[in-house]
Amino acid sequence: MRNHKLPVALLMLAAALPALAGPKLTAEQVLDKHVAATGGRAAYERIKSTVTKATAKLAAQGIGGPMEIYAKYPNKMLTVQTLSGIGETRQGYDGKVAWSRDPLQGLRKLSGPEAELVARGAVFNTQLNWRKAFPKVAMLPDKKINGAACYVVKLVPEVGKPLLQYFDQKTFYMVRMDMTFEGPQGKMAIETTIGDYRPVDGVKVPFSMRQKIGGAAEMVVTLNSVKNNVPIDDALFAMPNK
């Protein structure tokens, strides 16, 4: 009996190896499967604008407030966020100019990597249109996130730091994203855990995000509502005069 055990075990291991490794997917394929898993190209393409209402909380510190995000095809975006004790911050991109207005630093026209970052974030349906923001993509070694095996895709922009997206190998939902903020204020790692996917007009949208900022603060963003194809005046995205 003893003599038989080792060869049998080796045989089983050898048989299991191809299954463990799985078929090799390219980064493009993973991104395509993510689109398919969350609703499919046609469902995404039916959406031309989105108004999202959310709540952002630095829960542990007792700071937070409402957040509204307006997005419009092909690349317009406005985020309005209010933090208790600080006030209202607006950040926008009208397709040409990236800008920010907050109670501490006032109105600023953004430039360099900071502006590029906002412009990339404004690309509508980035899941579908990632090529507009990231000329290069590549696969990184798989990683486990909360016990689930994930594909890791590196998306490289023309200007600025790469973005890492983690996709659950079973569901192809994105479960984590790592990015680096770059601007005059410096560089800061932002790790976002993504979950609570819910269908909205045929597309599955993550309603929960937990952001670890600079390895210190933790911000939880919870979506309250997502409305698609709401008419939005382009003027909303333009940089204000003051």
Partner: peptide, 19 residues
């Protein structure tokens, strides 16, 4: 709705808010 769209103002405000 990409998550990075929501990350920036929140992150900066969070850092400004460090006491």
């Amino acid at each position: 709705m990409p998550a990075n769209r929501r990350a920036l103002p929140a992150a900066l405000a969070a850092c400004a808010a460090f006491g």
